[in-house]
Design a binder for these strands. Sequence first.
DNA 1: AAACACGCTGGAAACGATACCGGAAACGCG
DNA 2: CGCGTTTCCGGTATCGTTTCCAGCGTGTTT
Lengths: 338, 338
Amino acid sequence: MRSKQSTITIHDVAKAAGVSVSTASRVLNNKADVSPETYKKVRQVIDDLNYTASLAAKSMRSRTTNVLGLLVPELIEVYYHEVIKGVGAAIENSGYDLLIYTSGSPTRNKRASWEREHVALLSSGLTDGCIIVSPSAPTFQQNANIVVIDPHGAGAEVPSVVATNHEGAIQAVDYLVSLGHRRIGFVQGHPTAWSALQRFEGYKAGLHKAGIEFEAALVCEGDFTSACGKAATYHLMNQPNPPSAIFAANDRTAIGVLEAAQELGLNVPQDLSVIGFDNIPETMQTTPRLTTIDQSIREMGSLGVRLLIDRLQNRESAQLLHTVPTHLVVRDSCWMRK
Amino acid sequence: MRSKQSTITIHDVAKAAGVSVSTASRVLNNKADVSPETYKKVRQVIDDLNYTASLAAKSMRSRTTNVLGLLVPELIEVYYHEVIKGVGAAIENSGYDLLIYTSGSPTRNKRASWEREHVALLSSGLTDGCIIVSPSAPTFQQNANIVVIDPHGAGAEVPSVVATNHEGAIQAVDYLVSLGHRRIGFVQGHPTAWSALQRFEGYKAGLHKAGIEFEAALVCEGDFTSACGKAATYHLMNQPNPPSAIFAANDRTAIGVLEAAQELGLNVPQDLSVIGFDNIPETMQTTPRLTTIDQSIREMGSLGVRLLIDRLQNRESAQLLHTVPTHLVVRDSCWMRK
DNA sequence: AAACACGCTGGAAACGATACCGGAAACGCG
DNA sequence: CGCGTTTCCGGTATCGTTTCCAGCGTGTTT
């Protein structure tokens, strides 16, 4: 055990100021019913002692903390940083503080239980409400103050922020088609992710719209990693009749496609066009720079904060599903079909 | 007031399992002295009820939470995100959870008091220890479990992580000198930052080493923003005898220099060489790509976590100041002097 | 057979803060 | 002067958890 930190409490303040704890508390919270001189005296002591109320104790007693929680699965993938930037921007001058929680425990892998546990953790008084990013099982207590961003699984009963994944995928296919491509490969996203499914559906809808018949052989399974992009590329390009373009369900996967293409000696975009989805910062640093569908991840974070605050202040709209538009970002990884 | 969230407590668990709260608590914490069948029964109930202990109550009672705190001033500037990535990487599988705290209140601007307040907030039981990024007044309780990263002001009495700012600046000047530059402008960093001072000193030391006389007219004040880089460039380049290279105290400022150069119709690097400091991701996307001194911000974050955990587990070394090496990253913004 | 140890359990006191209630002055008014 | 109000303050219960201590059956020892 470590040495106990002689943390100073409201009792110390009260004693030093010669008042009761109740009075000290009243001063702390700027409540009425305290004489000016008492107020000044206690304030002085608070300053002198460098006293700050324990968030733990405070939030245990009174159920409101002015703190918002953000639950992210990890802190390495840039995607989450983009969300955090959006949240950070929205929190500025909102009057709320922000608590981002992530777990370093190996148990984190059991995503579903991890989420359940930590949502409870945050909403058990520490925060007034909380935003969950990419929850795998978006089923929560009805009355909890929760907003989810990009949930796995549709039809959550809490306010959700999602990108127009379906339309975005159509935009991607449209673009490739406009460049003359007819055989377009697709690398799927994580099978449990609703966004992945929507993108796949959009891919099919885009083909249909262009009068191109869907071909199962051009579709590979995936899980949003770059590894699956690589594997898919090897698989697709070694077919007898390989595609002239590959649409990856997200940028991370598209980066894997780019790597594989290079290893296979294929020039992008001359020999193979590649398009991604998300518009993460790295896409500007790949060679060639990746053409992609932007889903304004930041905007999703900001919107999440606004929705949560609205809900907390009872200004909530009846609408549960909130969408952020996607749009095509043309860079250098797509070219006319030869 | 909002509707009370019917949050379920350990009492509910105890009642449902037909045991006392003490026993329920023992099961929760995997303490000894509880019969296997009781254990199983209680575990079952915990699962069924989706119960999670309130962090607030827990940390109030027992002084150890297995949570580390990270205090950042804001969440927009990429610099902090790099730190967070490093921290995030180090926290993985460390067995600790992470709580990042930032404030959205306008009072945040009163940095010193904000820090004092929030350090107390976090260390008042919520976390086992905490890491503070860029604290302006690194004077804390002696026995608090605190680690600081890139503190303003030298000689903190808590473990600190800093880059070799002095050496890094020398490296920058060395490089410019090796390209034939003799008149090298300098845009200073924020005056209260120790790192800024060190870089300035390094700049002077580098000149001295090369036998170049220091010239006050070539130095501009700054504050780490891009705006000051712009202003400084206008000022420097409109002098009768302008410098052939500008060394900015950080990348953000260097980006301002780049912008101003473009506005002035100066070609970088042909007409003007520019070098920054930090190596933030944006430096790869500027035109031309910015040559800079890398200070491995991520590594600083990771090291911070390791130091904190060491301290918590009493494996602390006597050394207080920990440095991370800087090194030159050559890209496209510097060229031989004409 | 008495005494003792031991495994398991429940009761109650804390942790630090706030909310509620009630009491003591001070003051105004008939 | 008595009485009701107002102003200010202190006491106490309470939030959900852990920890300490005591109790109670059994099994083991002398």
